Simulated scan of single mutants.
Amino acid sequence: MCASGKTAAKKAKRRKVVIKFLELREKLNDSFVALCLFGNDGWVKQRALSSVRQVYGVEADDGMSFDTLDAPTTDDIVYACMSGSLFGGKKVVFVRGFVMPQGKQMQEVKRKLSKLFTQDDADYCVVFDLDNAKTLDGVDGVEFVDCNKLDGAGIGKWITAYCRKQGVDADPIAVRKLAEYCLCDMSRVATETQKLIDYGKFDSESVDMLVHKDVEYAVYDLSKLIASGNVQRAMASYKGLLAQGEDNRALFGLLYNFYRRVYYVKTSTELTEDKIAECLGVKRGAIMFAKDVAARYKPMQLKRALSAFVEADGKLKAFLDEDEVMTWLVFRLATL
Rank of each mutant, 00 (worst) to 15 (best):
L86A: 11
K90F: 02
D75C: 06
I77F: 07
V52R: 00
V93G: 05
F87I: 13
M106F: 01
Q105A: 15
Q102E: 15
D62K: 07
V109Y: 07
G57L: 01
V78W: 07
S65M: 04
K110F: 00
G89R: 01
G97E: 12
A80E: 11
G84C: 03
S85K: 00
F87A: 08
F94E: 13
S65R: 02
L69I: 10
V58L: 01
A60T: 08
R53D: 04
A60W: 00
P72V: 12
V93Y: 02
P101A: 05
D61W: 09
A80G: 11
R111N: 12
P101Y: 09
A60C: 02
R111E: 11
E59C: 00
F66T: 01
F87V: 10
M64I: 06
V55F: 14
F66S: 04
M82V: 06
L86K: 06
V52C: 02
A80L: 06
D75P: 05
E108R: 08
V55D: 04
K104P: 12
R96G: 08
E59I: 00
E108D: 14
P101R: 09
V58M: 03
V78P: 12
S83R: 13
C81K: 05
I77T: 13
G97Y: 06
D75K: 14
K91P: 03
A80Y: 06
Q102H: 09
D67W: 02
A60S: 11
Q105R: 13
G88V: 00
K112W: 03
V93S: 04
Q107V: 08
F94Y: 15
K104D: 14
G89E: 04
A80C: 09
G103S: 06
P101G: 11
R96W: 06
V52M: 02
A71M: 10
K91E: 03
V93I: 10
